[in-house]
Design a protein around this nucleic acid. Structure first.
Lengths: 171, 171
DNA sequence: AGGTGACATGACAAAATCTACATGTCAATA
DNA sequence: TATTGACATGTAGATTTTGTCATGTCACCT
């Protein structure tokens, strides 16, 4: 059901079409929250509308349909977000690879950690720049909380990779 | 295919039965790497054996079958772990909820962040204690890399939640 | 006028995952 | 010796997700 709430959450910020939502997933959610493709998004949007949690509010060119969240949808979203879910489902291919690092020999591990350190540094800088830009343009700070968490997460990944490299050397 | 490699990775550390693996998933992987239930693990173990990536090395009481990774399996695991996968699949119900924080009103957000701060603190302390205990008992440091990352991750979650609470107050 | 690329939605089959049901063993303890 | 709980492995149907194919529109550029 998470996809459903991810969509409601994005629609709670502003009305959007399936195409818009697919791009938002790609830009904002894919890397650390939830992955979904358009072939999953469109059918779920139809179900959301059928269930009265979202509604088409505008029809544009090329068959574009803009959806908005309904009051029912907003209530249902709030219920889900506040649900004290202490057993969340986590599936992270990236973390899994890091976890499997210990099955590699030292030279392979070093190679992987270097790649890791570089990748997370880039991602950290990208997010940090995005936050600064958004902050300067007056976006509400609360909307930047998630980005801030993302930035801190990649910073930790980076520091951890360097720490791990260091430990490999001293063994 | 990630489940397959998660299993191979655990078997690369030491031979284990499906039951053992289910517990390892529960204890080590579920919270930040990969979630899987026994109903998925047993069939996949059979496929692993059929494909020659793992093999039954011991039959114990109660139908227990202990599997070990084969050389082919080890090579295949290495190939996958080193694969420069720059588009990993991430699905994290927990992070998704945090992302949707911005759709809540201030009082709800505060409530959620407090719950968050408390939960991540507990998880951090649990992991840190486990690392200390394992370190003292002479486990190879490289096997603790993943735990160290987990601990740092929950530490960041905790600090972020406090930071976010602070920002909410100053708005 | 024709070509290109972003925009826009969808269907469908295959694979992965979940939930629930199903069955039996063995060790400890009351 | 009866009960209980951990050990141990499975199956089946439903749901979710993936990957690919399919189709058409509109704006812009040459």
């Amino acid at each position: 059901m998470s996809l459903r709430y991810a969509l409601l959450g994005l629609l709670a910020e502003e009305p959007a079409s399936g195409y818009d939502l697919a791009r938002k997933f790609e830009r904002n959610l894919r890397r650390y929250a939830w992955h979904a493709q358009h072939s999953q998004i469109y059918p779920e949007l139809n179900r959301l509308a059928a269930d009265g949690l979202a509604a088409v509010v505008e029809e544009g060119p090329r068959g574009r349909r803009t959806y908005a969240i309904t009051d029912t949808g907003r209530a249902e979203l709030r219920r889900w977000v506040l649900d004290p879910n202490d057993d969340p489902v986590v599936r992270n291919e990236h973390t899994l690879r890091l976890f499997l690092l210990s099955t590699l020999d030292v030279e392979d591990a070093r190679k992987m950690l270097r790649h890791q350190a570089e990748g997370s540094r880039l991602e950290y800088e990208r997010l940090r720049a995005a936050i600064d830009a958004a902050g300067a343009s007056g976006r509400a700070p609360v909307e930047l909380f998630a980005s801030e968490l993302g930035a801190r997460y990649f910073q930790v990944l980076h520091e951890w990779a360097l720490w791990a490299l260091d430990h490999l050397d001293s063994e």
